[in-house]
């Protein structure tokens, strides 16, 4: 019980990243206590953790994609020199963001038409990204970093 309490206290400090570990640990402790079988407790803990982690990652990715689509759509609608606002309103109204988008340049290639743009998020931090037109709409196009630069990303 005391261990559960300690885990709960840790939760707000750790943010979302530990949610799966904590859920798994809580489920495992409960199962281990109920059955008196450590292996069963462990099995339920890791099983729960794997499921919760995969579900959480999926949910966070859907939200990030929504944000990227919102920025990419504004990038596609920009005329040179124009400044436009972007905004994302998630179904769960947590982490809604808004800011500005400015077109830097257009890249017309034999493969696709892409644009480089500056975008800001509410606190006024600026980032550079790219979007390409595909199948009638604009999509975020910045590819993944080089594997040696992944470091702690995985």
């Amino acid at each position: 019980m005391r261990r559960c309490l300690a885990l709960l206290l840790l939760a707000p400090l750790a943010g979302c990243g530990l949610a799966a570990d904590l859920t798994g640990a809580a489920a495992g402790i409960a199962a281990g206590t109920a059955t008196g079988n450590p292996a069963a407790g462990f099995a339920i803990a890791v099983g729960t953790r794997a499921g919760v982690q995969a579900g959480l990652n999926w949910a966070v990715r859907v939200r990030a994609r929504g944000e990227q689509d919102a920025v990419a759509e504004v990038i596609g609608s920009l005329a040179p020199g124009e400044v436009r606002a972007w905004r994302i309103e998630h179904d769960i109204p947590v982490g809604n963001e808004d800011g500005e988008v400015r077109l830097v340049r257009e890249m017309v290639t034999p493969l696709a038409t892409c644009r480089e743009a500056l975008f800001s998020i509410s606190e006024g931090k600026w980032f550079v990204t790219t979007a390409c037109r595909q199948e009638g709409r604009w999509k975020w196009a910045a590819a993944e970093p080089a594997v040696p630069r992944w470091g702690a990303l995985q």
């Binding site: 999509k139 196009a141 910045a142 970093p145 080089a146």
Partner: peptide, 21 residues
């Protein structure tokens, strides 16, 4: 079909992916 942008740099004779994180 998806389109993406990235950077590559020459490393000796080979070309390597150069987009940072």
């Amino acid at each position: 079909r998806g389109f993406y942008t990235a950077y590559v740099c020459r490393d000796g004779q080979a070309w390597r992916w150069a987009s940072a994180e």
